[in-house]
Deep mutational scan, measured.
Amino acid sequence: YQDQEQRILKFLEELGEGKATTAHDLSGKLGTPKKEINRVLYSLAKKGKLQKEAGTPPLWKIAVS
């Protein structure tokens, strides 16, 4: 689980600052079920590491501290 968090954070960091992506996109790029990706995304957002942008589907990006 920790491993997934690292992979997602790394992927988003590599996208570049301010760039956002969807759970669907992450799921495809990382070869992980979207349900699992979503769980990790919401967990990271709760920890303040990610920012969720409203929309359908929601967009995710690295939180700027």
Score class of each variant (00 low, 15 high):
residue 35 K to S: 11
residue 15 L to G: 07
residue 9 L to W: 02
residue 42 Y to G: 09
residue 40 V to S: 11
residue 35 K to A: 09
residue 46 K to I: 06
residue 26 L to A: 02
residue 61 K to R: 15
residue 45 A to G: 08
residue 64 V to G: 13
residue 28 G to F: 14
residue 52 K to G: 02
residue 58 P to V: 10
residue 7 R to H: 07
residue 47 K to Y: 03
residue 4 Q to S: 11
residue 52 K to M: 12
residue 2 Q to F: 10
residue 28 G to V: 15
residue 18 G to K: 07
residue 60 W to M: 00
residue 44 L to R: 00
residue 41 L to E: 01
residue 22 T to C: 05
residue 22 T to Q: 01
residue 17 E to I: 06
residue 12 L to V: 10
residue 61 K to E: 02
residue 63 A to I: 07
residue 58 P to T: 13
residue 61 K to Y: 05
residue 24 H to D: 04
residue 53 E to G: 07
residue 34 K to W: 08
residue 32 T to Q: 13
residue 46 K to Q: 10
residue 20 A to C: 12
residue 55 G to A: 08
residue 26 L to Y: 00
residue 39 R to I: 06
residue 59 L to I: 07
residue 40 V to D: 05
residue 50 L to H: 00
residue 25 D to K: 11
residue 4 Q to A: 05
residue 16 G to H: 03
residue 21 T to M: 15
residue 52 K to F: 06
residue 5 E to H: 04
residue 16 G to C: 04
residue 48 G to A: 03
residue 38 N to D: 11
residue 14 E to R: 09
residue 28 G to S: 14
residue 16 G to L: 02
residue 10 K to D: 11
residue 12 L to P: 01
residue 4 Q to C: 11
residue 37 I to W: 00
residue 65 S to Q: 00
residue 42 Y to M: 12
residue 18 G to N: 10
residue 32 T to F: 09
residue 27 S to H: 05
residue 8 I to W: 00
residue 4 Q to D: 09
residue 37 I to Y: 00
residue 59 L to G: 09
residue 8 I to F: 01
residue 49 K to L: 14
residue 40 V to N: 13
residue 4 Q to H: 13
residue 37 I to H: 01
residue 46 K to R: 12
residue 56 T to N: 12
residue 43 S to F: 07
residue 30 L to G: 01
residue 25 D to P: 00
residue 50 L to R: 00
residue 57 P to V: 05
residue 9 L to S: 02
residue 60 W to A: 01
residue 24 H to Q: 06
residue 64 V to Q: 14
residue 3 D to L: 13
residue 22 T to A: 02
residue 63 A to C: 11
residue 16 G to Y: 03
residue 32 T to I: 11
residue 53 E to Q: 15
residue 40 V to A: 14
residue 43 S to C: 11
residue 63 A to W: 03
residue 27 S to C: 11
residue 31 G to D: 09
residue 49 K to H: 12
residue 7 R to I: 11
residue 4 Q to W: 06
residue 29 K to R: 12
residue 61 K to T: 10
residue 49 K to R: 14
residue 3 D to G: 10
residue 65 S to A: 13
residue 39 R to F: 06
residue 7 R to K: 10
residue 36 E to S: 12
residue 20 A to Q: 11
residue 41 L to H: 00
residue 30 L to E: 01
residue 10 K to P: 01
residue 46 K to V: 07
residue 57 P to F: 02
residue 57 P to W: 02
residue 8 I to A: 03
residue 55 G to T: 10
residue 30 L to C: 05
residue 38 N to F: 02
residue 44 L to P: 00
residue 17 E to P: 11
residue 45 A to W: 10
residue 36 E to N: 07
residue 22 T to F: 02
residue 32 T to H: 14
residue 57 P to R: 04
residue 28 G to K: 15
residue 31 G to M: 11
residue 35 K to C: 10
residue 29 K to N: 11
residue 25 D to R: 06
residue 57 P to N: 04
residue 56 T to Q: 14
residue 51 Q to K: 15
residue 54 A to P: 11
residue 30 L to P: 00
residue 7 R to W: 03
residue 6 Q to A: 13
residue 63 A to D: 08
residue 2 Q to K: 14
residue 21 T to G: 02
residue 44 L to D: 01
residue 11 F to A: 14
residue 57 P to A: 03
residue 30 L to I: 09
residue 10 K to H: 09
residue 43 S to V: 11
residue 13 E to W: 06
residue 43 S to Y: 07
residue 27 S to I: 04
residue 19 K to S: 13
residue 41 L to Y: 02
residue 58 P to E: 08
residue 53 E to R: 05
residue 27 S to N: 03
residue 52 K to L: 06
residue 63 A to T: 06
residue 37 I to V: 15
residue 45 A to T: 05
residue 45 A to V: 11
residue 48 G to I: 00
residue 40 V to K: 06
residue 37 I to G: 00
residue 47 K to V: 10
residue 38 N to Q: 12
residue 48 G to M: 03
residue 49 K to A: 13
residue 41 L to D: 01
residue 8 I to C: 06
residue 44 L to E: 01
residue 41 L to Q: 00
residue 62 I to F: 06
residue 45 A to M: 15
residue 20 A to T: 14
residue 38 N to C: 02
residue 50 L to N: 00
residue 50 L to A: 12
residue 26 L to M: 12
residue 55 G to D: 04
residue 11 F to H: 09
residue 35 K to G: 12
residue 44 L to G: 01
residue 56 T to F: 10
residue 32 T to K: 14
residue 65 S to T: 13
residue 14 E to F: 08
residue 54 A to D: 10
residue 10 K to W: 06
residue 13 E to T: 12
residue 6 Q to E: 14
residue 64 V to A: 11
residue 8 I to V: 12
residue 42 Y to L: 09
residue 16 G to I: 01
residue 45 A to N: 09
residue 17 E to G: 13
residue 29 K to S: 12
residue 21 T to Q: 09
residue 35 K to Y: 07
residue 59 L to D: 02
residue 58 P to R: 03
